[in-house]
Nucleic acid binder design. Structure first.
Lengths: 339, 339
DNA sequence: ATTGGCGTCTACAACGTTGTAGAGTGCCGA
DNA sequence: TCGGCACTCTACAACGTTGTAGACGCCAAT
């Protein structure tokens, strides 16, 4: 049985409140009393009981990180960053996966469950929630900061990447290197508000600005952005027979999967086809050839999001209008577009 | 302010204990009372307070997963599996990273901190703890299950992969395909008990059994098993000028980094050099060429470890001698060793 | 000499829940 | 008719902590 304040108090001959005061660095304690209490703490191996503290204070020191899945390397790297930043604030992180497939309703239920887990707040990387669903996040029991997506008029702080601008920049990067027929892999039919929709928009904007035609054969919809999806989508494009001279993978995994298929089909990268990805995963430095990509500012997202969340938690209550921050991105040129 | 049992009790005209009974499915309640209480619960939006429950019951429904870092894809995939399995038991998982560099003392401190986080138990993937340090885990305040490593006579349940046997099988796989001079990348000087030491042992055992010479130039020590380490170690081997016809990367990332360097140096895989990895990461299916590797039974490890932990938690107290389970492994042959 | 204030410490209540003991009712069998 | 039992519900205490109010002694200022 673990020692409690009572045990320490009995051993050192003071009241439990005095022990509590020693632990919480209350200043007005005689040095000899403090010493006696500290000795008793050491002897009993006393550790404060977190549940009791939580019950009194209402704070758990825990936050949730709600993400699609860790198997997706982007989210693993994001989680790593969040864990690191949260540790600096003394917060522990509870990771919840919202697997795809259950739709907005299922996702919302998963999020609600995560919020009831007894956390002080949550970071939530939206998977496939829509505007109209977002309203029900309004009365979340704890502060919420949204990540990576752009839910317009959402009820919470957002820390997002510049999906549209970055996708436009990626496409322009290809166009500037002579590409005129660019395949885009990873769009989702009918999706507008999520990453897939926004990146598709950036792609189309860049085409339009350059006066290039949009060819649906080069933009096969579907996929969950795993490497296998990139391979499959690239195969589909090849099978249409539509000519192309560049590929924009909506994330690095898709781009890498596509690159693999291209090489098997005898297309050289970057000589025959330029390839760019999105995410700046660690592994893009080690693919063959090294993949040009977009660094979406992941570390900055983690830092800003945790900071916002900590502020909201400290504020207790509504505390001001939702903020929306877009962190800066960067095109990271590597071998797959250099020629 | 969130509703409490008192609010629901007042609204439905019963005692708080009756409300509590309704919530906990106590059988002896009149249907109409139950209905009245349930209506009041719905009206107030009552949710049980976790901290209070924890204080009473001593259970948090939380477990820690202590791993080196999520940026390492192996651990991300392991964490994904653990999260999934834990969810089936209604447990939430709190991930703690023990970054390398602080040595055994730092690691032990990090683990102790994680155990005090108010969790019911912990899964712990040992990074660089040694036998003598393991003793201090004896009096952990909560049950502990060790993952992936083999701490002999350790005080807790272990669920490990067959590091030695699997590494031997990997090496034999290369030898069976004609390799006689096999580079091994990822060993740690002087390490015996960790994955690096065990895999090195399997490698040496296979060499010995086949009557092949051990050449230290082919086994450069050092590295944290990131892709960049594989690239660096492969470069070191190339620079020694020592001939070799196969590479055993102690994990997939190292093997992939090495493969990249080989290809840049003009060595064809598998024609000139066979390459095998270890871990069966998702991405090994999509490298160029697809990487032969060892599936160490990660999913089984997660399932078994969570099951053991749940049992230990339920047992409250010592409850029996430590168990040691080795899950089965499998050589997954892909293109990098097929010729 | 009295008052006020500071330093040190304590008693008590409260956070929200659940286990224990038991009260009250109605029904059954002796 | 009455004891016993099952059913339904309640009062109280306890989990371990911290906030509040205040007791007590001492010193400085009035």
């Amino acid at each position: 049985m673990a020692a409690t304040l009572h045990d320490v108090a009995r051993l050192s001959g003071v009241s439990i409140k005095t022990v509590s005061n020693v632990i919480n660095d209350y200043p007005h304690i005689r040095p000899e009393t403090r010493a006696r209490v500290e000795a008793a703490i050491a002897e009993t191996g006393y550790r404060p009981n977190r549940a009791a503290r939580t019950l009194r204070s209402g704070r758990t020191g825990l936050i949730s990180l709600i993400i699609p899945e860790l198997k997706n390397v982007y989210f693993a790297e994001l989680a790593d960053d969040v864990l690191t930043v949260a540790a600096e604030y003394g917060l522990a992180v509870l990771i919840e996966q919202i697997r795809g497939g259950s739709g907005p309703a299922g996702e919302l239920a998963a999020v609600e469950a995560a919020l009831r887990r007894g956390v002080d707040g949550a970071l939530y990387s939206v998977l496939d929630l829509r505007d109209e669903d977002a309203a029900s996040l309004q009365d979340a029991p704890v502060p919420l900061v949204l990540l990576g997506e752009r839910i317009f008029g959402g009820p919470a702080d957002h820390v997002t990447m510049q999906n549209v601008d970055a996708a436009r920049a990626a496409t322009e990067h290809l166009i500037a290197r002579g590409a005129t027929r660019i395949a885009a892999l990873g769009s989702h039919e009918g999706e507008v508000v999520g990453s897939a929709g926004l990146r598709l928009r950036g792609y189309r904007e860049a085409l339009e600005a350059a006066g290039l035609e949009f060819d649906p054969r080069l933009v096969p919809p579907g996929g969950t952005w795993f490497r296998s999806d990139g391979a499959r989508l690239m195969t589909e494009v090849l099978e249409t027979g539509a000519p192309f001279d560049a590929v924009f993978g909506f994330n690095d995994a898709v781009a890498i999967g596509a690159m693999r298929v291209l090489q098997e089909a005898g297309r050289r990268v970057p000589d025959d086809v330029l390839v760019i990805g999105f995410d700046d995963l660690d592994e893009t430095r080690y693919t063959q050839p090294a993949l040009t990509t977009i660094d979406p500012g992941r570390r900055r997202i983690a830092e800003t999001a945790v900071k916002f969340l900590v502020e909201r938690i400290a504020a207790e209550g509504p505390g001001g209008a939702p903020r929306e921050i877009e962190v800066p991105f960067r095109v990271v040129e590597r071998e797959s577009t250099r020629r």
